[in-house]
């Protein structure tokens, strides 16, 4: 049984690149501890020799021809994908200098 303490919550949050406030660390720790305690139930099941199932249907991965297609553009000919960008510079995504 895992002890979900505040240190573990902080550590996992950091792995997920989530910044938590002190309050969030407290609340999440106790909630996660409760949830993880509940899912411990899974340890009761005899799963010896059972292949893990990660997907409900069994389909081969379809491949398409390796051809470059043009990015959809708007009326001005700009790539539409830039419409959703936080910041744009010419035809590219603008990011702060640390990147």
């Amino acid at each position: 049984m895992v002890d979900v303490n505040e240190a573990l919550t902080r550590q996992v949050a950091a792995l997920a690149r989530l910044e938590l406030s002190e309050n969030e660390v407290k609340t999440f720790s106790s909630q996660l501890s409760q949830i993880i305690k509940y899912v411990e139930k899974l340890q009761e099941v005899d799963v010896k020799g059972v292949e893990p199932l990660s997907h409900p249907i069994d389909l081969p991965t379809p491949l398409r021809p390796d051809v470059v297609l043009a990015s959809p553009t708007d009326l001005e000919g700009k790539p539409k994908v830039l419409q959703a960008a936080p910041e744009v510079l010419y035809d590219g995504f603008k990011v702060p200098p640390i990147l």
Partner: peptide
């Protein structure tokens, strides 16, 4: 956070993999 935990090194076997096994059941 819960998902990152269930997939993280040291825990993924006991949580993610086991859940997938019980899913098959």
């Amino acid at each position: 956070i819960l998902g990152t935990f269930a997939l993280s090194s040291g825990y993924s076997e006991a949580y993610f993999q086991r859940a997938c096994q019980v899913r098959r059941k």
